[in-house]
Amino acid sequence: MKDGICRRRPWQGRTGDAGRLRRDLEKKMEEKLGVGIDIGSTCAKTVVTDANGEILRRSLRPTGWSSVETAQTIQEELAADGITADNARFVATGYGRISVPFADKCVTEISCHARGAVRLFGSQELNVIDIGGQDTKLIVISGGAVTEFVMNDKCSAGTGRFLEVMANTLAVRPEELCRMAASGSDTRISSLCTVFAESEVINLIGRGTSRENIAFAVVDSIAQKVKTQAGRVRFHSGPVCLTGGLCDFPFVTERLASAFGRPVVTSPAARYAGAYGAALIAAGLKG
């Protein structure tokens, strides 16, 4: 809750204010920092770049139950470091992008991930796999621009959520599951639906299958699902790269590479690709 401050007077058109704001901004246009805030379903990522797009700082926090409050906390943290509207521009992305009232612009995670990936991987021709908490996106980039993309439908199979549910069933944390999976092998979950897959996992547990093997099956199932989804876009011959929360787990990249039958590259910074892309867009904003 906040004090009842009446910021918008119903009697005043908003255009007058906006017009003035725009002129003011134009004056201060030169050399601003870019701030990208990616409010995902599980994690909120923030990246600050200088006017040239070099990363100055990045941070990560759980989104929690309220994306508005998370956005507010981020704003306060940035302000504590002296990063405010006076010296920076803000772009919000991710499913909680509309919860960032101080953002100069909202851009979808598709565009932001693409932009971030192009810069991170230093190539204008990319095929991006982004495994997010709720959505998995496949983005084809040609000449530095998005030419095609698909997102999973309502079903959470092949997303971070799927991993979380399965980790829960195995009573481990998602990160542990990914680590355990590396020492498992030769186990499969046939169903691609989270609900059915969960009962399959329970069956595997019942049969005494080792947790490592079940973890292997879970990660493999994600890779398979992503591969199936990729049938709806046309990946080109450029590199396939992984962004999002699973970048830190080499085994995930390995399973994806095996599913796609070609190398999949990633980097620890790729987890921030969305926020980085947003920051790059912010740094390039005019007016």
């Binding site: 809750m1 910021r7 918008r8």
Partner: peptide
């Protein structure tokens, strides 16, 4: 988020009224 409630809710000795505003 955005809701401002008026009045003192530190005590339950109050009449059953909640007045509020949402943003502006």
């Amino acid at each position: 988020p955005g809701v401002t409630v008026y009045g003192d809710f530190s005590t339950e000795d109050r009449s059953p009224i909640v007045s509020l505003n949402m943003w502006d």
